[in-house]
Amino acid sequence: MALQAWYMEENKEDQTLPHHCNPKEHVSLSKLAELGVLYWHLNPKDYENDKEFQTIRQTRGYNYMDLLDLCPEKVENYEEKLKNFYREHIHADEEIRYCLEGSGYFDVRDKDDRWIRIWIKEGDMIVLPAGIYHRFTLDTTNYVKLLRLFVGEPVWTCYNRPQEEHPSRKEYIKNLSEKVGVALQAY
C-alpha cells in the first residue's frame, strides 16, 4: 500500500484528525521527493532480517536505532510530549522513522509554506531532510511504535520556528532551490 499524503486545512481542531482540504488535494510521492522527503515500504514484522532495510541502513549510514512506543499507557508525561512533537520545528540532521505498528502523521511544509500531512502506517519508513519545517502527531488510533534511526549518536534537538538563519535551514533552502522540479530518488 502506498503512502498517503495531502494538503491540510489549517485549523485549531483536534490534531489527530486528517484535516483534508475541501476538495481534497492529494500529494504524490514525487512531490514529497522534490521536498527531500524519502519513502520506502518495508516488512515491519521481520525488520531485523529484512535485507532491503539492512541495505538502506548500510547505504545511508544509519548505525544507531531505538524504539519509541508512543501511547498514553507507555509514555510518561504523554500529553506534554505530544504537544512538543506537534510544535513546528527543524533538526540539524535528518529525521528517520520506520513505523512498525500503529499510525500517525508527519506534517511538512512545502515550498509555498503550506502544510502537507503524511500518514505513516505499519511498514512505512520516511526520511525528513535536515532543515525542513515539520511536526508529528498521532492519529485517532492513539498509538504508534516507531523505530528511530540515526547516523552516529542520537540527537533529538528541536529548533522551533522561526529558524531561517540556522545552518541546516539555510542548506535545505539552498538544496531546494537547486532541485526545483528534480525529484530525489529513494533507495
Rank of each mutant, 00 (worst) to 15 (best):
V37Q: 11
V37F: 03
V37I: 14
Y39T: 06
W40Y: 04
L42Q: 06
L42C: 08
N43Y: 00
P44C: 04
P44E: 11
K45S: 13
D46H: 09
D46C: 08
Y47T: 01
Y47I: 04
N49E: 12
N49A: 12
D50Y: 00
K51M: 11
K51W: 07
E52N: 09
E52W: 02
F53R: 00
T55I: 04
T55K: 14
R57S: 13
Q58I: 10
Q58A: 14
T59C: 10
R60A: 09
R60D: 10
R60M: 13
G61Y: 06
N63H: 07
N63L: 01
M65A: 13
M65L: 13
D66W: 07
L67T: 11
L68K: 12
D69Y: 13
D69F: 09
L70G: 00
L70V: 15
P72F: 10
E73G: 08
K74D: 13
K74M: 15
K74S: 15
V75A: 08
E76T: 14
E76A: 15
N77A: 12
Y78W: 12
Y78R: 06
E79C: 09
E79D: 15
E80H: 11
K81W: 00
K81D: 00
L82I: 07
K83V: 11
K83T: 08
K83G: 04
N84S: 14
N84G: 12
N84R: 13
F85E: 03
F85K: 03
Y86V: 00
Y86H: 12
R87A: 02
R87H: 06
H89Q: 03
H89M: 02
A92E: 13
D93C: 03
E94M: 05
E94Q: 10
E95T: 05
I96K: 07
E101Q: 14
E101Y: 03
G102E: 06
S103H: 07
S103T: 06
S103N: 08
G104R: 09
G104Q: 04
F106G: 01
F106S: 01
V108C: 00
R109C: 09
R109Y: 11
R109F: 09
R109K: 11
D110P: 02
D110T: 02
D112E: 15
D113L: 14
R114N: 15
W115Q: 02
W115K: 06
W115P: 04
I116C: 04
R117V: 02
R117T: 10
R117I: 04
I118R: 05
W119K: 13
W119S: 09
I120H: 00
K121G: 12
E122A: 10
E122G: 03
E122L: 05
E122D: 05
G123V: 09
D124L: 08
D124E: 06
M125C: 10
M125P: 03
M125G: 07
I126Y: 01
I126L: 10
I126Q: 06
V127Q: 10
V127D: 07
P129I: 02
P129N: 08
P129A: 08
P129C: 09
G131R: 11
G131T: 12
G131K: 11
G131A: 11
I132P: 06
Y133P: 00
H134K: 12
R135W: 09
F136P: 07
T137P: 05
L138Q: 01
